[in-house]
């Protein structure tokens, strides 16, 4: 039943997304990177944001995409934790090899 309801909802969305000034979820997907980097021209940005308002699936998708990105960027913190873990023999090897 849930699956049938989702299919019907998608069909209705499919009709709505063909209206002028609207884009499909597939087209929305293609614009995500440029939107997040603020590289979309104003008209396209309006269309993107309109889709975002009317499509819950894409809103949830974009939220998870952003969380993924933030978590990936957070892995940079390892730099700080690795500071103390460089073995002395590596330092010695680097210094010995510098003239090679």
């Amino acid at each position: 039943m849930k699956k049938a309801a989702q299919t019907l909802k998608r069909r209705m969305h499919g009709v709505m997304f063909r209206f002028p000034g609207m884009i499909t979820c597939n087209e929305f997907e293609d614009f995500i990177l440029a939107y997040l980097e603020d590289e979309l021209p104003p008209a396209r940005k309006r269309v993107f944001e309109l889709h975002l308002r009317v499509c819950r699936s894409c809103r949830l998708y974009l939220a998870a995409y952003k969380r993924t990105l933030a978590a990936a960027k957070a892995t940079r913190k390892d730099y700080d934790e690795l500071e103390a873990s460089v073995p002395e023999d590596l330092i010695a090897a680097i210094l010995a090899a510098k003239d090679s």
Partner: peptide, 12 residues
């Protein structure tokens, strides 16, 4: 995406 270009993933 389905043939209408709609997302088919299960949203959460």
């Amino acid at each position: 995406f389905d043939r209408n270009g709609c997302r088919v993933d299960d949203p959460f």
